[in-house]
Design a protein around this nucleic acid. Sequence first.
DNA 1: GACTCTTGACAACATCATTGTCATGGTTCC
DNA 2: GGAACCATGACAATGATGTTGTCAAGAGTC
Lengths: 142, 142
Amino acid sequence: MQRSRFDPDPSRPVYVISVAARIVAVHPRTLRIYEDEGLIEPARTPTNIRLYSDHDVRRILWIRHLTQDRGVNLAGVRILFELEERLGVRILEALSDEWTAGNCDDAAAPSLRDSMGPDPEALTSAPSAPSAPPAPRPRSAP
Amino acid sequence: MQRSRFDPDPSRPVYVISVAARIVAVHPRTLRIYEDEGLIEPARTPTNIRLYSDHDVRRILWIRHLTQDRGVNLAGVRILFELEERLGVRILEALSDEWTAGNCDDAAAPSLRDSMGPDPEALTSAPSAPSAPPAPRPRSAP
DNA sequence: GACTCTTGACAACATCATTGTCATGGTTCC
DNA sequence: GGAACCATGACAATGATGTTGTCAAGAGTC
């Protein structure tokens, strides 16, 4: 899938939380919860403003696909990210194969490690997840 | 981990649902729900009585660990089993490493593919999951 | 024949995911 | 410079999930 045609560096943090929320179609409150759960780790400006990169956006798209389309809860998403990091293989690519089979005509399923900008065309096809997810924070005890 | 010292064949279905439930410390109602969700597929006698094997028991131990200790819901467990089958690698072994680090002194973490009987000693250490999980059934739409 | 098994069904309770809202204070940008 | 947006912590509503409990009716087992 093509990279964003505006900014070729997918790790550069450029989006504030309201923009990132619109791109991935979730509520800003939800993005803060994902961060509290250790699933994402957006950059911060010197004045503590969150800035999301294309990597972050792809990661959030995966979270959204897994939770909304596959019904996985956030603990399950965390383990999938852990496995991707620990095994060093494209485990979620196997899932994206299923995505492409069921959701779009794009035969070449992107890997979680591939870069891909939040281009509108790209956003409606299979998400790819960035590499090196942050270490998940332990979930608060009930 | 040693196999069960009573029955060396871990795929032989021998336990009725009440026995399997006692072995894995979950309710028989819960085992029926796991089956409805496509996570397990115990054998049936000619008179339709469920019979669970050691493979089934190990698989259920994994489900219990993932849901109770890691907080993963059943959709997430299903995806982990799918990945294990599709990638053909011991992905949950990476999780059992974490288990052994936090839960018991057994340094050699068993693989999901290893056989292991429901020996009481074995049951209190890291569970291993059987190979070739059944095809998961689609979850009923909300 | 008492107990356990099967099916389908309904329900209670705790937890989770997402969204909404509030208050207070700081930052950005038009 | 002030409107809009950002940050934090906090509480709450709604729908969904996981586990357990129970019921009814019928079949099988020991």
